[in-house]
Design a protein around this nucleic acid. Structure first.
Length: 473
RNA sequence: GGCGCCGUCGCCAAGUGGUAAGGCAGAGGUCUGCAAAACCUCCACCCCCGGUUCAAAUCCGGGCGGCGCCUCCA
C-alpha cells in the first residue's frame, strides 16, 4: 500500500513516491522572523513535521527537507528599525525563539534551515533574476524588477484563478512600487534610504517576498522537487508566484506535490493581532498547559480541516494524553511483574500497527490513527486487568508505541516533560515513603495530608498493587 | 463578481454508498482505607427539504447556517 497525499495542484489525493533515490525532496515555507511564531504558525509546522516523519518512519524514505526563515521583508525591516537594531541581530532573536518552540513541540531537525539573507541565498536569487531576465519574464520600473505575468501562460493554475474575476473584484495593491499590470509582482525591490540593500542584483536593492523561496528551493533541492508545503494562505500569491519564478527560470516543472495545511482558528475566528487572539507557546505554558498537549491538540484533527483552538479543547487534549501516559506507566509495572508472552497480544499489536500505518498513509489521517491507538489501549488495559499480559509481551508493546511515537512525536515529548516535575523527585519519593509509613500504621488522615500537599504543588499520587506512583497534575 | 471549505452525541473528532471509530465530560457498577487509575454497562436515526439507489452521514438538486481566499498572512 502506498502513501496517498492530497495535491493542491490537482485537487485530488494521489499516490506519492519520490522521484529519485528513495529520497523525498521537500521544501516548506517557514517563519517570517519579525515576531515569535504563534500556534497558528506551529499548526502548519507540526503537520509538516508529521508528514516528514510519516515519509521517514512509515514509508522508509530518506529525507532532504528544507525549511527557511524569511529574515528580510517589510515587517522585519520595520521591526528592526523600530528596535534600533541591525536587521540580522533583530531577526536572530526570533530565530532563537523559533528553535526553542520547535524543540518544545518536538519538531524534528530538518536537513537545512536557510535564511534569506545568507550570502549563498542572495547569490542564488541574483542568478534566478538573471535567468528570468534572459527568458523575457521581467521588466524594470522605478528601479525595481518585476515579474511579467502575461509572459507565463500557465499562471494561476495552482490557485485556480479566474483572470476575469480577479480583474473585477480584487483589491488594488497598495504598494507604492510601480507596475505595468496590477497582477505583476516584484522580484527585486529597488534600494531605498534606511533600508538594507544588496548589490548582487542591479539595480541595488532587496529581494521581494517570493524570490527567496524559489531561489533556496532550487539551490538546495534541484530544479524539480517532490513536495512543497506550507499554510493554506500561501497558495496565493506566494506559491503561485514561486511556480512562475521557478518554472520561468528553469523551464521545468517545479514541485510535483503541493501540500497545504488549513487554518487554526481561535474561538472560531482567524487569529489576528487586532483581535488579540494570537497565542505563542510560552503563553500556553504560562497558563499551565504542556507543549505535548498542544502538539496532541494540533494533531487531533485532519490537517486539511480548520481546527478551532479553545481552552476547553486544550484541556481535553491534556486529559486524552494523560490516558496514554497512564497506560504506559502501567506497562512498566507489568514488566517488573514478570510473566511470559501471549500470542493473543502479539496478534492484537500487529492489527493495531497495520491500522495505524494505514491511517497515516491515508493522507495523514492523524485523528483516525489516534483512534486506533486508543482502541488498542483499552484492549491492553482490559487484558492487563485479566492478567493476560506478561513481561514477555512488553517488548512488543514498547516496539509498537515506539513506532507510534516516532511518527506522531507526542509520547516521548510528554515523557521528557514528566522528567522535570514541579517538585524535586527526591522530595516526592520521601513524601511517598512517609505516606506509606502512615498508611501502614493506618493513620489515613496523615497519609491524606501528604497526598493533598503534593497535589497542591502539582503532583498527583496513585496507589496500586505494586506501590505508589506519582505523576504531574 | 470569481474561486473554495465546512455543518456528525454536551464538547473535540474519524467515517465519502452497505446500515455511525475514538477521546473528553456525564450516569450506574466492579476494585480501593479514601482517592486515583483501570475495566464493564449506558449515552447520535449524522442542519433542513426533495431526488437517485435494494441500500445515503456519504451521491445529485434546493434551502438554512458558519467560514476562508481573490497581492500582510502559517
Amino acid at each position: 500500500m502506498t502513501m496517498r497525499l492530497y495535491n493542491t495542484l490537482t485537487r485530488r489525493e494521489e499516490d506519492f513516491a519520490p522521484l529519485a533515490d528513495q529520497t523525498v525532496r521537500m521544501y516548506a515555507c517557514g517563519l517570517t522572523v519579525y515576531a515569535r511564531g504563534h500556534i497558528g504558525n506551529f499548526r502548519t509546522f507540526v503537520c509538516i513535521d508529521v508528514l516528514r516523519r510519516t515519509l521517514k518512519y512509515v514509508e522508509g524514505y530518506a529525507m532532504r527537507h528544507v525549511m527557511n526563515f524569511t529574515d528580510v521583508d517589510d515587517r522585519t525591516i520595520a521591526g528592526a528599525r523600530q528596535a534600533g537594531m541591525d536587521l540580522r541581530r533583530y531577526t536572530d532573536q526570533f530565530i532563537a525563539a523559533f528553535r526553542e518552540d520547535a524543540r518544545a513541540l518536538g519538531l524534528e531537525e530538518v536537513e537545512e534551515m536557510p535564511r534569506a539573507t545568507d550570502e549563498a541565498n542572495l547569490r542564488a536569487m541574483a542568478g534566478l533574476v538573471a535567468a528570468l531576465e534572459k527568458n523575457g519574464h521581467t521588466y524594470l520600473s522605478d528601479g525595481s524588477i518585476y515579474f511579467k505575468i502575461s509572459s507565463m501562460p500557465g499562471y494561476g493554475r495552482l490557485a485556480r484563478l479566474d483572470h476575469e474575476g480577479m480583474q473585477d473584484g480584487a483589491r488594488v495593491d497598495g504598494d507604492t512600487y510601480g507596475k505595468e499590470n496590477a497582477r505583476d509582482f516584484v522580484l527585486w525591490k529597488g534600494a531605498r534610504a534606511d533600508e538594507p540593500h544588496w548589490d548582487l542584483v542591479q539595480p541595488s536593492g532587496r529581494p521581494g517576498w517570493h524570490l527567496e523561496c524559489s531561489a533556496m528551493a532550487l539551490r538546495l533541492l534541484g530544479d524539480s522537487i517532490d513536495i512543497h508545503a506550507g499554510g493554506i494562505d500561501l497558495i496565493f500569491p506566494h506559491h503561485e508566484n514561486e511556480i512562475a519564478q521557478s518554472e520561468g527560470a528553469t523551464g521545468r516543472p517545479f514541485a510535483r506535490f503541493w501540500v497545504h495545511v488549513e487554518y487554526l482558528l481561535v474561538d472560531d475566528e482567524k487569529m489576528s493581532k487586532s483581535l488579540g487572539n494570537t497565542y505563542t507557546i510560552p503563553d500556553l505554558v504560562a497558563k499551565g498547559f504542556r507543549p505535548s498537549a498542544v502538539r496532541y491538540l494540533l494533531l487531533s484533527a485532519h490537517y486539511r480541516k480548520p481546527l478551532n483552538f479553545t481552552w476547553a479543547s486544550l484541556a481535553q487534549a491534556e486529559e486524552s494524553l494523560r490516558r496514554l501516559t497512564d497506560f504506559l506507566a502501567r506497562v512498566d509495572r507489568v514488566e517488573r511483574g514478570g510473566g511470559g508472552a501471549h500470542a493473543a497480544i502479539a496478534v492484537r499489536l500487529a492489527e493495531a500497527e497495520a491500522a495505524f500505518a494505514a491511517s497515516m498513509r491515508d493522507d495523514l489521517n492523524t485523528a483516525a490513527a489516534l483512534g486506533t491507538i486508543f482502541e488498542l489501549v483499552r484492549a491492553l488495559n482490559s487484558a492487563m486487568d485479566a492478567e493476560e499480559v506478561g513481561a514477555g509481551d512488553v517488548p512488543g508493546i514498547r516496539a509498537l508505541f515506539g513506532m507510534v511515537d516516532r511518527v506522531l512525536g507526542i509520547l516521548s515529548l510528554r515523557r521528557a516533560e514528566e522528567a522535570a516535575p514541579p517538585v524535586p523527585i527526591g522530595e516526592i519519593e520521601q513524601a511517598i515513603a512517609d505516606r506509606q509509613a502512615a498508611r501502614r500504621r493506618r493513620d489515613f488522615a496523615a497519609a491524606d495530608r501528604i497526598r493533598d500537599a503534593l497535589a497542591a504543588r502539582g503532583v498527583l499520587l496513585e496507589d496500586n498493587a505494586a506501590g505508589t506512583r506519582w505523576k504531574r497534575k
